[in-house]
Design a protein around this nucleic acid. Sequence first.
DNA 1: AAAGTAAGTAAGTAATTACTTAATATATTA
DNA 2: TAATATATTAAGTAATTACTTACTTACTTT
Lengths: 202, 202
Amino acid sequence: MSIEQVRVSKTRDKILEAAIGLFAEKGFNGTTTKEIAEKAGVNEALIFRYFSTKRDLYGAIIEKKIQEDPKIELPLETFKETKDDSLIFRSLGIRMFECVEKDPSFLRLLHFSALEGHELSDMFFDTYVQHLRTVLSDYIEERISDGAFKNINPFLAARAFMGMLTNYIIVKELFGEKKKKRIKKEDVVETFVKIFLEGIKN
Amino acid sequence: MSIEQVRVSKTRDKILEAAIGLFAEKGFNGTTTKEIAEKAGVNEALIFRYFSTKRDLYGAIIEKKIQEDPKIELPLETFKETKDDSLIFRSLGIRMFECVEKDPSFLRLLHFSALEGHELSDMFFDTYVQHLRTVLSDYIEERISDGAFKNINPFLAARAFMGMLTNYIIVKELFGEKKKKRIKKEDVVETFVKIFLEGIKN
DNA sequence: AAAGTAAGTAAGTAATTACTTAATATATTA
DNA sequence: TAATATATTAAGTAATTACTTACTTACTTT
């Protein structure tokens, strides 16, 4: 059974992986099942043996991405107790960069799925964004009651910090800004964290 | 001649407007020329009289968007002299919200064109983002030499501020966040400006 | 009013699309 | 080894795609 499973999923996985790359590159409508089959090195008909429709395949991809997400094992969980804000926010920022760099297809897939209106795109978004927001917002709230941060809307503050970084990363990855005068991610994070923390510290 | 011009562009404009809506909604590959013709209320063949290919039509749309851009007549130009930072950044933030609200297709078109890799997408991006960035960055630099702001990389600071807002707007417009607990844009801007200015003020 | 030009249309085209079918190869089990 | 189940394939399908063609109508200019 396990051997069979392995073989079964081998083809299925080849299809999935090829499709991830193509959907991320050209979107759902820009990708043909023929291309997917070619890239996966399997017969086109096999796609429809494993996934009843092309849209189903797209859904399976999003589900896969959601599941394989290592929940971004947040530095927050690790460092929360230290209350070393600079360390926490810096490592969070770096982590956001790394997360996207590790999987270049991720951001494009997320955006394509939102624009193309896939039914699972909300879940995709929630998994990666909503969760982090909540955790961060909670931490900020805690630091406010510590008297360390100003009495500000913690949810908006979390969004401000994540927004700076996310937007920087999106522009870099999606809009392919000229790589010439690109600044080291450590410096970007450093600057953003400085602005943000100075802005909310008491 | 002018009468003729008007008639000529009437059909052309109907096509352009229909195409803008559809391309913004479903992207280039998700939109068919048949649909465009139907929505515009013209014969499909007319599309190819005015635009030699579908891709050409797409290009014409981006060019149109770039040209009709009122250069976002920045509040900066108006208020620069006052050096009232809070006023300047707040009105800039509000302006960014309004700009997107006024033309809902704009953001989607910008993102689709980037993802789908249209040749003019860079110019599109530059027109709307690069320009604002430069102006803002220049102002920040000026305030640094005034001694009003910390000695920080003005380019990164500009991106931090724009990033907070842009990302908030993108999430709202593109990822269609639930409208329930949505905060008034004035309050969002207020909070972001407060964080940012406190963060870079001397 | 004649001639010329541009706007508009119906009916096509060849190519491509997502998806199916029916048959063959390969493995597993009895 | 025979029987059964599964994996894989070649060759289709009907529908849709971007784009063309050959023609008619409407307007402008002389």
